[in-house]
Write a protein that binds this DNA or RNA. Structure first.
Lengths: 141, 141
DNA sequence: TATACTATTGATAACGAATCTCATTACCTC
DNA sequence: GAGGTAATGAGATTCGTTATCAATAGTATA
C-alpha cells in the first residue's frame, strides 16, 4: 500500500490561486464564495479539501479565528514564521522572531516538556484601519 | 439602565469548583460531563454561560483547541501570563514572559499597528507523557 | 489514440460545538 | 414572607466542517 499519487485538477489550482490573491487570512467559506462569484463552479467540499491539503503540504498557514473557524493564508513555504494580523481588515504581515523561537524552546525544556511547538500571533489594527477607526468592524476577517 | 446585578447560584459555584479541580484546559462539554457524572443535574447551556462569564471576569483563561473548540482553565486572576500545555494529558503550566510582551508590542508598532494583542502558547509533551510515550493520545485535552 | 484504473469531485446528509428560546425556577431586596 | 427578575435548562436552531457515494475526469498503459 504505497501512498496514492496526487492528481492535478483545475480545482486545486483555482484554490491555490485564489488564496495567493488574498492579502490576509480567509475562511474556506469566504474563499468558496469568492470563487463562485468569479464564475467558478467549484464545490464547497473541494475547497475545504484543497485548503487542508495546502496546509499539510506547507503551502498555507492556518489559524483558528476567535469564533472558532479555520482561516487560511498562502505563505512562504519551508520557513517558520509568525503573523501580525489586522483585526479589522485581515491584512497580515509575516514576521520572524528567532528570539521567540529560542524562548519557547527553553521554557519547554525548563519544565521537562519535550517536542515543543508554539502558537505565536500578534493581532492589532493596521495603520490604515487605525486612522479610519470604523464604528463597527468592516470586512470581517 | 444600570448593569444587572449578578446572582450567586450553586450552578456557577459548581462550575468554578470543577474548573479549579482540573489541572489543565477543559472544554465546556467535558466539564459538563464531569459534573453530571458526579451527580450534578446542571444543564449544558448553563456551563457554557458560566465559563463565558468566568472568562470575561478574568477568573478563567480560554483558548481555541486545534480543532476549534474553546477550552477553559482556572487561572491566577489579574496577571497576564501564557501557558505551557501538554498535548497529551492537558497538564498546564502558567508562564510569564516580559520579553515576549515587549517583543509583541514593538513588532506591532514597527509595522504601524495599534492596539496590539497577542496569542502566545507553547505546546509539548510533559515529562510524564514524554516517558510513557503512548502509541496513541490518551485523555484528549 | 483508446482503454482501464482510480483519485477527485460535488450535492447533500450528517455531525458537533455553541447559541437561542422561553416557560419555569429560585435568588435577592424590601 | 412576597414580588421582581436574573438565571436555569431542555430542546430547537445555527453554522462550520466532515462523511457519503455515485458520477467525473486525471493518468498510465497498451
Amino acid at each position: 500500500m504505497t501512498a496514492p499519487r496526487k492528481r492535478n485538477t483545475w480545482q486545486r489550482e483555482a484554490v491555490r490561486t485564489a488564496l495567493a490573491d488574498d492579502d490576509g487570512f480567509v475562511s474556506a467559506q469566504r474563499l468558496h464564495a469568492t470563487l463562485r462569484e468569479s464564475g467558478s463552479p467549484i464545490g464547497l467540499a473541494t475547497v475545504y479539501r484543497a485548503l487542508a491539503d495546502l496546509a499539510v503540504e506547507g503551502e498555507a498557514d492556518s489559524l483558528q479565528s476567535l469564533d472558532g473557524e479555520s482561516l487560511y493564508r498562502a505563505c512562504t513555504p519551508g520557513q517558520h514564521h509568525h503573523h501580525l494580523i489586522c483585526r479589522n481588515c485581515g491584512l497580515t504581515v509575516e514576521i520572524e522572531a528567532d528570539a521567540v523561537e529560542r524562548w519557547a524552546q527553553s521554557v519547554a525544556i525548563e519544565h521537562g516538556f519535550t517536542q515543543p511547538n508554539h502558537v505565536v500571533d500578534v493581532f492589532g489594527l493596521c495603520a490604515e484601519c487605525s486612522v479610519t477607526n470604523w464604528p463597527e468592524p468592516r470586512p470581517p476577517v
